[in-house]
Design a protein around this nucleic acid. Structure first.
Length: 386
DNA sequence: AATACGGGGAG
DNA sequence: CTCCCAGTATT
């Protein structure tokens, strides 16, 4: 069998398989370009099972492009809370404003306009154009590269841009006339259900008999991919400040900076500490550093004791968190402490925004998972103790 | 071309 | 535990 025949076989049998085996997914129930766009953004780096409940909540809260464009950013982040890569949510709303402004609220169907949307790159542009509008554009994600690298025995590193470009050209050749939507989804569906990263289910694969990697017995060692650097460790000391007086029963949170990691989300006040040789810092110096950091931030509270440890791994950083209970100082004492402190130190500019919140208020602020876990633990403990 | 940017699932 | 997943923006 020559290569042309191998390609034809692949396209025909894969498409046939998909039409009988495709999953019933929420964004497949209508051909609504907005639904497809939202789902594709959510599905970046994220599994289908994780996305489904978020997708339902998101569409219920923001049924149309215009609803999303007009919403407060904090509402959008709250809806994305726990899903990760929050720049996707911020960019999606920016793009919704672009669509409202320049395309009358209708998702554009030309390559130039779709690609110009914030957060839409080569993959997502191809996915929206093909899935929503049946345009013969490639949508090459990790699933597609895995399937193609095996079937055609492509041993180039898939992390290289040149490899992805090659795959895009290949997909354009493979798309059956007029079937871009189903074919691109078929490619990804095969990668998700059959041609899996580890122990692929070759015996149920519709194109196994002409799969080059399978015929060579090397399907498990493809695709070739350089592995990522391990995340660097960081140690941080965190304050769970319990309010006094008018803030009784509340805890103190602050908003993260406008840019960078977890931008504009909310968190517990904390400070990074140098990594000691033994790893974690003993309680005494940790609480001392924390006390100074709180004062520096204009918070009149003092650490009272150890509460818990928490860990969180981002793709590039590993956080080791030591959480300490702290107590807000009474007003008169606080004023005195603050007065003495400001006499001895330069006053900080650009202080972060702080809020005192009770358990119910958590529904109105978007937190990264690790702080959600700590704050919930605190309120649960309160409930049990009280 | 290299780095920043979250969070889950499988074994 | 360890390993895997892998799009877009920025520089």
């Amino acid at each position: 069998m020559n290569q042309t025949e191998q390609k034809k076989f692949f396209s025909q049998h894969l498409l046939e398989w998909y039409m009988h085996n495709k999953r019933d997914l929420p964004w497949r129930r209508h051909r609504n370009p907005y639904y497809i766009w939202v789902s594709e953004i959510m599905l970046q780096q994220t599994r289908v099972d994780t996305v489904i409940p978020y997708f339902h909540r998101f569409i219920e809260r923001f049924p149309t492009v215009e609803d999303l464009a007009d919403a407060p950013e904090q509402d959008v982040l709250k809806c994305w809370e726990g899903l990760g890569y929050y720049s996707r949510a911020r960019n999606l709303q920016t793009a919704a404003k672009q669509v409202k402004e320049h395309h009358g609220g209708q998702v554009p169907d030309d390559k130039q306009s779709v690609f110009a949307l914030k957060g839409v790159g080569p993959y997502t542009a191809g996915a929206v154009l093909s899935i929503a509008f049946n345009k013969p554009e490639p949508a090459v994600d990790g699933n597609v590269m895995r399937v193609l690298s095996r079937y055609f025995l492509i041993e180039e590193d898939i992390m290289k841009g040149s490899t992805r470009s090659f795959m895009e050209g290949l997909v354009v050749e493979l798309i059956p006339e007029g079937r871009a939507s189903d074919f691109n989804q078929a490619l990804m569906e095969l990668g998700a259900l059959v041609c899996t990263p580890k122990s692929p289910h070759c015996l149920t694969c519709p194109v196994m008999e002409h799969c080059s990697a399978r015929l060579e017995g090397v399907e498990e060692s493809l695709p070739v991919k350089t592995k990522a650097k391990p995340p660097r460790p960081e140690f941080r000391v965190v304050a769970l400040v319990e309010g006094s007086g008018e803030h009784a029963g509340k805890v103190l949170i602050r908003q993260r900076p406008q840019e960078g990691l977890l931008a504009r989300m909310w968190e517990l006040p904390h400070v990074q500490v140098p990594q000691s040789r033994s790893g974690r810092l003993p309680d005494e110096p940790a609480m001392d550093i924390l006390a100074g950091a709180l004062l520096e931030e204009g918070i009149t509270a003092r650490p009272t004791g150890y509460m818990m440890d928490a860990e969180h791994t981002f793709s590039h950083i590993h956080w080791n968190l030591q959480v300490y209970s702290c107590r807000e100082e009474e007003l008169t004492l606080a004023a005195e402490t603050k007065a003495v402190y400001t006499l001895e130190h330069e006053v900080e500019d650009a202080e972060p925004i702080h809020r005192w919140i009770c358990e119910e208020d958590m529904a109105r602020y978007a937190f990264p998972n690790v702080f959600l876990k700590i704050i919930r633990e605190y309120f649960n403990g309160k409930q049990t103790a009280g």
